[in-house]
Design a protein around this nucleic acid. Structure first.
Lengths: 137, 137
DNA sequence: ATTGTTGATGCAACCGGGTTGCAAAGTTAC
DNA sequence: GTAACTTTGCAACCCGGTTGCATCAACAAT
């Protein structure tokens, strides 16, 4: 377990510290995207700044990606193992208006789009709001 | 001029006050989306809260719509005259990474998308980042 | 015109997410 | 063991957004 987590960290060139192991643990157990404030609540007593920097480190090293779902707070989710966070790999994010969970629709790539003349495209953020299958039951 | 502005306000059932006329004036002159803080700078001396509530009123009455372009601050832009802010009327927003302006691509509807089984769709937010035609020159 | 009601405005204060500076603790290299 | 570097914890700050409250303006009824 710990072995697996350390492997993941090492494979992304992140020095495994106790803190980082704990955070990654939570991120793995978590099936949906999680925000910094939400992450804080997962622990008895943590320092916000440390969590913040941990997430930033994870993000920089492409272990996780950040998601702006329009809720006002940025959320984070694990990248796919092979992810390099390139434009082609971008997927749609879904925000359930019932349970308020945000999730990666990894199998749903963002549709390509045309732009006005002389506009060039760098990246696209696409967030779908609706009700997830869990809340539909 | 003032006539035209008051007409616009009245047509959306917004009581025309001096404040609101001023704000709408700015919004009309403005070709790109504008944030509350940016709007504040357009005036010598205004109260943030008043501007805030003015924008909220405008938004509620569908004179403007809010745009979350991922920049961290919400921006606002005039709706098309006939706009009812329905899902079908949603358009793509563009954020230029050079000039940092956000604009409505009114002629570019958001492409339809498929979702996993048992997911239902309520709305979609799509923001494209890139370089606008102005900055390309 | 006077009063009363409603809505708009201005001011101050607050909230919460995000971020940084700095010193202490931990880790690594030599 | 010591020096160099990294990570952590604490505090404080920034800024956009938001609310409470008192004041002021607009308007209606009498």
């Amino acid at each position: 377990m710990k072995k697996e987590i350390d492997n993941k960290l090492n494979s992304k060139n992140i020095k495994p510290t106790a803190m980082r192991e704990l955070v990654l643990q939570v991120l793995i157990e978590q099936k949906t995207a999680i925000s910094l404030p939400q992450l804080e609540h997962k622990f008895e007593k943590v320092d916000k700044a440390t969590l913040y920097r941990t997430l930033k480190t994870f993000e920089k090293n492409k272990l996780i990606h950040s998601i702006d779902d329009g809720s006002g707070t940025v959320k984070y989710a694990l990248c796919q193992d092979t992810c390099e966070c390139m434009p082609e790999e971008l997927h749609v994010h879904f925000l359930c208006t019932k349970c308020n969970q945000t999730l990666c629709l990894n199998d749903f790539p963002i549709p390509s789009i045309s732009l006005p003349n002389n506009f060039s495209l760098e990246s696209v953020n696409m967030v779908v709001k609706g009700v997830c299958s869990n809340c539909k039951k």
